[in-house]
C-alpha cells in the first residue's frame, strides 16, 4: 500500500522567522524540544497560533501536526483562537484575591467585553504578589492597580503612549 501523499502545509512564518526557527532548532540535542520556542515565535509574528501554523511547525520538526497540537493545547499562553492585540492577564489567586484582584478583573472584563483590541483573561499567580493586585499587559507587569488606574493603563497601550510587547511577550 502506498502511503498517503503528504500535503505541503501553507507557509505562515516569514523568511526571517523561518531562518530564526532553524537557528532555534539547532540549539537542542533533539529537535522536538523546539516545539515551545517555535510556537512562541509563531505567536510573536501572528498574534495567535492557527492550525496551519501548527502544521508548519510540525513539518519543520518532522512531527505529526497532532503532536504539535497535543503540546500546544496544554499551555495557557498559547492562543489557538485569535485574541486582541493586547492581552490583559489579571491575577485572582489568593494574595491578589484579598487585595482586590477579582474586582479588578470584573471591571476590566466589563469595560473591554466589546473591544476587539483587548482580551481580558483571569490567570493564576503571576509571582508578583508584592504588587497585588497585579496584572500583565502582554506579559509586562503592572501593580498594584485600582480598576480606574488599570483602565487608563490599557488606554495608554491602545493609543500607543505605551508600546506593548507581542502577544507572546517578546519585544515587538
Amino acid at each position: 500500500m502506498t502511503p498517503p501523499e503528504r500535503v505541503q502545509p501553507p507557509r505562515v512564518l516569514t523568511d526571517d522567522n523561518l531562518a530564526k526557527a532553524r537557528e532555534i532548532i539547532a540549539l537542542y540535542p533533539h529537535s522536538k524540544s523546539a516545539v515551545l520556542p517555535l510556537l512562541h515565535l509563531v505567536q510573536d509574528q501572528e498574534g495567535w497560533i492557527s492550525d496551519d501554523a501548527m502544521r508548519e511547525v510540525a513539518a519543520l520538526l518532522g512531527l505529526q501536526p497532532a503532536q504539535v497540537l497535543g503540546t500546544c493545547s496544554f499551555y495557557t499562553m498559547f492562543k489557538r483562537d485569535p485574541v486582541g492585540r493586547l492581552v490583559v492577564s489579571v491575577c485572582t489567586n489568593v494574595s491578589c484575591y484579598v487585595n482586590g484582584g477579582p474586582e479588578l478583573y470584573d471591571a476590566l472584563q466589563q469595560r473591554y467585553s466589546e473591544d476587539a483590541d483587548v482580551t481580558v483573561e483571569e490567570v493564576e499567580c503571576l509571582a508578583a504578589c508584592d504588587q497585588a493586585p497585579v496584572l500583565q499587559v502582554n506579559y509586562e507587569y503592572h501593580g498594584p492597580l485600582t480598576p480606574e488606574v488599570a483602565e487608563d493603563l490599557v488606554e495608554d497601550y491602545k493609543s500607543g503612549r505605551l508600546t506593548p510587547r507581542t502577544v507572546s511577550g517578546s519585544q515587538g
Binding site: 499562553m77 509571582a127 506579559y139 510587547r165
Partner: peptide, 16 residues
C-alpha cells in the same frame, strides 16, 4: 556541558 534554563513563560522581562 549543556545546561538549560527553563524560565516561566510569563517572565518576559526576566527572560530578556
Amino acid at each position: 556541558h549543556t545546561a538549560f534554563i527553563y524560565i516561566r513563560g510569563e517572565f518576559a522581562l526576566g527572560a530578556e
